[in-house]
Design a protein around this nucleic acid. Structure first.
Lengths: 331, 331
DNA sequence: TATTTCTGCTAAAAGGTTTTATCTGCAGTT
DNA sequence: AACTGCAGATAAAACCTTTTAGCAGAAATA
C-alpha cells in the first residue's frame, strides 16, 4: 500500500496539485469552501506531507542537531529532554549526537547533520570550560551553546553558579550559621572557581575553601582535615556537589556529629539518586538543567525563524531545594 | 555562499551530472580516470550530497527513530549511546524522542518520524513490562524492541536477568557462602520475578526473598527485619539493585557488622555513581546496556538493508563486576 | 564491408512538495 | 463596447539527487 501524496489528495478533491497545496497551507488565493473540502479529503485518506520533499524545497528540514560532548552524562540528558519537550509541538525533531569528546567523531556528526540540512545546532558539554569544536563558529545556520561557552558573539546558556552558591550560603546564614566552610571539586573547573568566589563574597573573612575531586571519598577526607585542625569547627558546610556532600555527611556520622544539629550541610546538583537517599535527605541546589534546555530550544526556534536574538551569555537561576540536612525543614 | 551541488561538481569536472553521480557512487560504467578526476574535484570544492534529495529519491533517509518511554532515565541513555555508536559509521543518524510515557506524545513523535521517512524504529522502555504503543506493530518499516517486549513475531533484546542473578549467586557460593538472602524491588516488576526465580533455583531450600521498593531505605529496613528475626543470620545478601545494596551495607555498618567479613553483599545494575562510591565498593551485575544498544542498532541496520532477521527475544548476558563488597577481590 | 558488441558518457525522468507566473471568467468602470 | 480588476484556479518550474534508457564511436566479429 502506497503512502498517500498530495497528488492523491488533489485527485480525490478534484483540484490541481497547486490548489491542494495552497488549501492545506493557507497560502495563495483560495475559496473557503475549496479549502474545507481539500482539508477534509486529506484527513480522510490520511495524507501526511513528505518531510524530505518539503525540506528539499523550503530549505528547512525542521530538524535540529544536538551535539553533546560526552556519552550522555547526567548533565546532558535533562537538557536534551528540555530541548525536545519544547520543540516537539512545533514539529521540530532532534538528532542526538554523542561525540565522546572525540574531535573526529564530532566532525563526522557535524558533517552528517549539515548534509541533512538541519535548521540549527545546540552544543552542550559536561564541563563549562571544555572548548566546543571550532568548526561550529563558522556555520551559516544558528548555533546555541548550552552549558558551554561559545566563541565571541555567540549565544550561550549557563546555570548561574554564583547565584546558586549565594542561595546556599544565604540559606545557611538565615538559619543562624556563621562559620560556613566550602568543600568543593577541582580548582581547574570554571564552575568551581565561580562558586567559590561567590561563597567568599558572601561569608566575608573567615572563608575556608577546600578543593579536591568530585568524590564521596574527598568529602570524608575533607571533614577529617577540618576537624583535626585546631580552632573553631565550622557549624555548616556548603559542598560543591551532592557526592561530596554525601561523603561529608557519612564522615560526620562516623564522628558522632549530627546533621544538621551539630553541622548543617548543603550540596549542589540535586542529583536525586543521591540527594534524596542521603540520611538525612540533602538540602541542595538544583541547576534547572531542563530549563536550560527549554531556553536553548526556544532560542534556536526563534533563530530558525529568522528572528534576531541578542548574543551573549545568559545565566539562568538555580533553585534551592530544602530538605533536612540543612535544618531548614523539619519533617 | 551557496552550498556546492553535484551540478557544480559536474561543471568543474567537465562531465555531465549523471557521470558525476556514477563516478561518486561507483555505479554505471565509468572510466577509471574520470572517476578519479570527479572524486578529486568533489573533494576540492567540498561537495557533500544533500541527504534530503537523496532520501527523497532512494526512499531511504538513513535516519532512524529511537522512541523512549521515559525522560531519559539511566537505562535508556547507555542504550541510546550504544545504538548511535554502532550506526554513525554507517551514516545513520538517530532521532531521540522521549515520550514521557504519554500516549499522545508517543503518537505525535511516531507520526513525525514517519513523515521523515525514517528507515526504522527502536523502542526502549524503562520497565520490561510496560507495553509499547500498539501502533508500532502495524508499521511497514522495521521495528526493534530494546529492553522492552514487542508483540508476537517481533524482535526484542533484553538483559538476561536469570543469568545475571545466577552469576551473582554462584559468585557468592564459590566464595563459600551458603546462607544467601535476596533483597529486591517490587514483585510486580517482571525482572524482579525472573531474578528471584533464578536465585531460588540456585540456592535451593532455605531461599529467602524480601520484596520492597528500589530505595536505600528499603535496604536498611530489610536488614533490620532479617537480623531481628530468629535463626541463623545469612552470610551473604544478593540485592535487586545498587541502591538497595548501598542501604544494606550502611545498615550493616550501623550494626557493627563488617562487609564482606561478616556478610558479603552483591548488587545489581553497576550504576557507577553508587557502586564505586559505596564503602567498600560494590560487587555488582552489569546489564551491559550499551551492548543491548549495539545489538539493537546492528539489527535495525540489517533489517533496513533488507536482510531477514529471525524474530524472537534475545537475552544478552550480564557481566559480573567484582569489587570489594563480596570479598572476591582484595584491594 | 557490413554487422554486432562493448565502452564511456549523457539527456531526461522521477521522487513529492512549494511557489511563481499565467490563465480564465466575471463583475465593475469608463 | 472596450477596458480594468479581481477571484479562483492551474501549469510548470524549482529543489538535488539517482537511475533508466539511449547515443556515439571504437573494437571485434562475420
Amino acid at each position: 500500500m502506497h503512502r498517500q501524496t498530495i497528488r492523491d489528495v488533489a485527485r480525490a478533491a478534484g483540484v490541481s496539485i497547486s490548489t491542494a497545496s495552497n488549501a492545506l497551507n493557507g497560502t495563495g488565493r483560495t475559496n473557503a469552501e475549496t479549502v474545507e473540502r481539500v482539508k477534509r479529503v486529506a484527513e480522510e485518506i490520511g495524507f501526511r506531507p513528505n518531510a524530505l520533499a518539503r525540506g528539499l524545497l523550503t530549505k528547512r528540514s525542521h530538524a535540529i542537531g544536538m551535539l553533546t560532548n560526552d556519552t550522555y552524562g547526567r548533565l546532558t540528558l535533562p537538557m536534551a529532554a528540555g530541548v525536545s519537550e519544547v520543540l516537539v509541538d512545533h514539529g521540530l525533531s532532534v538528532f542526538l549526537c554523542a561525540t565522546n569528546n572525540d574531535p573526529r567523531l564530532a566532525r563526522l556528526h557535524l558533517e552528517t547533520l549539515l548534509d541533512r540540512q538541519v535548521d540549527g545546532i545546540i552544543f552542550t558539554a559536561t564541563r563549562l570550560d571544555l572548548k566546543p569544536p571550532p568548526e561550529l563558529a563558522k556555520l551559516s545556520i544558528p548555533v546555541v551553546y548550552a552549558f558551554a561557552e561559545g566563541p565571541e558573539n555567540s549565544i550561550s546558556f549557563f546555570p548561574d553558579d554564583a547565584q546558586g552558591a549565594r542561595l546556599a550560603v544565604e540559606h545557611l546564614q538565615a538559619l543562624g550559621h556563621s562559620r560556613i566552610a566550602h568543600i568543593t571539586g577541582p580548582e581547574d573547573y570554571l564552575a568551581v572557581r565561580v562558586r567559590a568566589k561567590a561563597y567568599r563574597d558572601c561569608v566575608g573573612p573567615g572563608a575556608v575553601v577546600l578543593y579536591g575531586d568530585w568524590s564521596e571519598e574527598w568529602g570524608h577526607e575533607a571533614i577529617e582535615q577540618i576537624l583535626s585542625r585546631g580552632g573553631d569547627w565550622p557549624d555548616a558546610v556548603f559542598c560543591g556537589n551532592d557526592e561530596i556532600a554525601r561523603g561529608v555527611i557519612d564522615a560526620l556520622r562516623d564522628k558522632n556529629l549530627t546533621v544538621p544539629g551539630d553541622i548543617a550541610v548543603v550540596g549542589f546538583d540535586n542529583w536525586e539518586v543521591i540527594s534524596r537517599q542521603t540520611r538525612p535527605p540533602l538540602t541542595t541546589i538544583d541547576m534547572e538543567l531542563k530549563e536550560i534546555g527549554h531556553s536553548a530550544g526556544l532560542t534556536i526556534l526563534s533563530l530558525t525563524r529568522g528572528e534576531t536574538v541578542p548574543a551573549g551569555i545568559t545565566r539562568l537561576p538555580c533553585r534551592l531545594v530544602v530538605r533536612q540536612s540543612s535544618g531548614g525543614q523539619t519533617d
